[in-house]
Amino acid sequence: MSFDLRFTKGQGTGNDFVLFSDPDGDTELTPTQIAAVCDRRFGVGADGVIRAVRSRNLEAGADALAEDPEATWFMDYWNSDGTVSEMCGNGIRVYVAYLLDQGLAELPPGGTIAIGTRAGVRRVTRATNGFQADLGVWRLDGGEPLVRARALPVARPGLGIDVGNPHVVVALADDSELESLDLGYQPVLDPAPEAGANIEFVVPAEPLVEDGVGRIRMRVHERGSGETLSCGTGAVASALAVRYWAGANAPDDWRVQVPGGVLGVRMHRADDGEHVSLSGPAELVYDGVLSLA
């Protein structure tokens, strides 16, 4: 038996998603269906699927409402291989743009909306050129595993960082090393984390800091999706790692160049610790209907 899925295709700096509205939580796609939707040859094609569901109608949404009763919408995010993910920095901006487009929420310029995710509640602010998402308190996590990647001659140490989902950031020597990587193959971590990790490879710009803003380039292999044109939480983790390596005088504002564009990262203090925010564009590309078995 098949059914029609009404969807919207969206993207943020080339990180693309299939979004659909299911406020009551009646349409739960299987991992096989999600992988089929995301297939770039036989499906719509995307790095992940996002379901817009009211928090009260999803088991995972109960924690979001307990944390913040204003988080009435939950971002139910799945990677392109059908595995569930805790958070997506580009995805949450596109998700908010989708809620506004569908008339499911209202958000004036400068306004903020609370969104439930499996990493906790995240607050998204509407800006003149897109959206800014407060990704909450970050932490060093996962140690310094060795990272092996195809076309990288020698294994390099990485830095484990958690921003609601796990990352390992690797510093490279120059642009040629970054460009020569073959991220069609999954890099290998030693030791390998049980839940896996997103792996970012970064190169500092020259100079690293210009007009008080740090600048880096990044490529990423996302857990469950492979290489993508952009990873929002990966850009955040990369900026945090380079600031950590650079020392106490490093700036709190960063511009991260990814293959799909440029993202802004800002670190700021709050009562519960240091938060990190991600800013960038969000575009809804087209609507469609897909017949699913």
Rank of each mutant, 00 (worst) to 15 (best):
N15Q: 06
S21V: 15
D26K: 15
A35L: 07
V37P: 09
C38S: 03
R40C: 00
G43R: 04
G48C: 06
G61K: 03
F74D: 07
N79D: 01
S80H: 09
D81C: 11
G82V: 03
M87W: 12
L99F: 06
Q102Y: 11
G103P: 04
G110A: 08
G111N: 04
I115M: 05
T125V: 08
G130Y: 07
F131W: 09
Q132W: 13
G136I: 01
L140W: 10
R150M: 12
P153E: 11
P153V: 12
V154H: 15
I161V: 14
D162Y: 13
H167E: 07
V170H: 04
D175K: 02
D175S: 03
L183K: 05
Y185W: 14
D190F: 10
E194S: 11
P204M: 03
A205M: 06
D211E: 15
D211V: 05
R215W: 00
R219A: 02
V220E: 00
R223E: 05
G224E: 01
C231W: 04
G232D: 03
N249M: 12
R255P: 08
V256M: 04
V258A: 02
P259R: 07
L263A: 03
D271K: 14
D271I: 13
G273T: 07
L278V: 01
S279H: 11
G280H: 10
V285Y: 12
G288W: 12
S291W: 08
A293H: 14
